[in-house]
Design a protein around this nucleic acid. Structure first.
Lengths: 205, 205
DNA sequence: TGAAAAATCGTGCTTTTAGAGGATATTATT
DNA sequence: AATAATATCCTCTAAAAGCACGATTTTTCA
């Protein structure tokens, strides 16, 4: 008896791609596809399924919530998260919600087949290392800036030098420099490049 | 005579998906696929192609650079950028490099067929509205940067000084400074602050 | 193979930043 | 009226960046 697969993804390319890649695989049958969570649930109600591939981004509810629903209503169905690189952060939540594995969309045929095999045997599959990704999540708090500091920050970002800013604001260069030093301190950086990059990232300039 | 299509993407799912979606379309033939830029160029040398679908993220060189190369070496080949949502910022550069259109990977069959039709007729196709995204970035052309310049730019943005960058890259400080000066020249700015602000606005860092 | 592009290294000089240590006014705000 | 925060100004030093010449080597590609 072949392994029955349901694919849930709103990208026609991925849907078709997976279907095509699995079409000639032995012992595997794609019994259905869905492009949203409602259709997916409806399909599961009426058809036996062994493994469900769930995209993390779906139009109606997220794949994470769908995963939870599936495991609640159909605990015998094993789930496999489908994700692009940038969504790796969500994978741990998917696992918490009962997913048996995680497959990045750039996976090749071998990975996909291995994932199915592993999961069908009751195991887990994951083809990404989280070591590299965890870092960027760290959010930095926006430092409190005074009116003058904001003005100076803006002018620095526009490429003005301290003397030019001083002229613009009718103050002395040392004053501008003070504000500049305070900006570096508040952002906890040691030069203009980091300062501007952070400020840009926080949408301040 | 059917329209000859080459698909370049390193995601087997997308590759297969597109192929499958276009398989039964009338007047369209997928004559080849490639999962990197080198294979793509090699294929174009030996086979006539009307339209090349180019993924923006490729393992060897970026789709943007590949697009440029293709238009230089095979000006008669029309190019269509393939991208996920998060990469929209790069699309304008793709267009600058001669692409005839842009297709998000979540596109359905209708969009894909319409894109092919439009492009083959000499027109442009784009199924995303840039109003929300590109506003600040679109104005200034993104300068062409060499591999080393990009590296240096990134390290500058991380707050490293010339001596630190030199150490990191195992080159002399004067070399780093040369790259830095070239960056300033290419971005038409006169200091680091402007450089980083611009680069951040263009999504380069 | 030969030309073009990129990457590498150099010197000398000026300007700007970064960092330390202050001090004194001017505003809030309680 | 007293306190705190902000804004202003100062000197000094060292480090880094910016700018202008240059040059050689390596890589890429037609």
């Amino acid at each position: 008896m072949p392994v029955k697969i349901l694919i849930v993804d709103d990208h026609p390319m991925v849907l078709e791609g997976l279907k095509s890649l699995l079409a000639d695989a032995e012992g595997i049958e794609v019994v259905g596809t869905a492009c949203n969570a409602i259709d997916a649930i409806a399909f599961l109600k009426n058809n036996p399924v062994d493994i469900a591939f769930l995209d993390i981004n779906l139009p109606d509810i997220s794949g994470i919530d769908l995963c939870k629903k599936v495991k609640e209503q159909f605990p015998e169905v094993k789930t496999l998260a489908l994700s692009t690189f940038s969504e790796r952060a969500y994978v741990s939540r998917m696992i918490q919600n009962g997913a048996s594995g995680y497959l990045i969309k750039s996976s090749g045929k071998e990975d996909i087949l291995e994932a199915i095999q592993q999961v069908q045997a009751g195991g887990y599959f994951m083809n990404v290392n989280f070591d590299q990704v965890a870092a960027p999540a760290a959010q930095r708090a926006v430092p409190f800036l005074t009116r003058r500091e904001k003005e100076v920050l803006l002018l620095i970002a526009e490429g003005l030098t301290n003397p030019q800013i001083a002229e613009q604001l009718f103050v002395s260069v040392t004053t501008v420099n003070s504000h500049r030093q305070n900006l570096l301190m508040k952002f906890e950086v040691s030069n203009t490049a980091s300062l501007i990059k952070l400020a840009a990232g926080l949408g301040l300039i």
